[in-house]
Amino acid sequence: MIRKDAIKIASDMIYNSPIISANGYISRDLFEADDKDTNFYMIGSMGLSSSIALGVALKNPRKRVYVFDGDGNILMNLGSFTTIGKLKPKNLIHLVFDNQSHDSTGGQPSNTKNIDLYKIAKSSNYTAFKTNSKIGLEKIFRKIKNMNGPIMILIKITKGGKPGKRITHLPVTIKKRFSQNL
C-alpha cells in the first residue's frame, strides 16, 4: 500500500472529524485526496503535528482528534509520545504512516527500519495497532470506533507514488477555517 492510498482510506473513514497532518507529502496527499475545513495542514515545524493535535484534543474532549504523522516526523518529536501518554487524552488517535524513509526529501532512510514505533507507543500508554494493508486498516478503524484513546495506528506503507499537489490555501486561511469548524 502506498502512502496516497492509505491516506485516502483513512480520510474517508474519518469523515468530518479534525485532522492535523504532518508537513511534506502527507499534508499534500491529504489535500489532494480530500481537502476540507476540518483539515489542519501543518506546512512547516516538522515533528509537531501530534503536539498541535494534543492541544486541540485537550480543549475539545467531545471530538475525536486525528493526527496524520510520518515516521520522520514523529522521530523528530519522540517526546510527544510520552507527553500524550502521560496526559492520556481519550479522544486522540495518532496515525503514523511509516515508509521507513524521508520520502519528501528524496527517500533517504529513517530509523524505523530497525526501531518499532508500535512498541514505543505501547510503552507510552497508547493502545496500539499495526497494519500494512487496506483491509487491515479498515478493520482497525471499525475496532476503535468506541475505544478510548490515546490510540496509535502504525501503518506500514511502501515508498513512492506521485506526491499530491502543493497546498494552495494560505496558512492563515487553513487556521481560520479549521478553528471555525471545531
Binding site: 503536539s51 498541535i52 480543549k59 518529536n77
Partner: peptide, 17 residues
C-alpha cells in the same frame, strides 16, 4: 513538556480552540 518546541505546538493547538 519534553522540549520547548513541543510546548509551542500544544499551545498552537489550544489557540486553534
Amino acid at each position: 513538556t519534553t522540549r520547548e518546541d513541543e510546548a509551542i505546538g500544544i499551545a498552537a493547538g489550544m489557540s486553534l480552540s
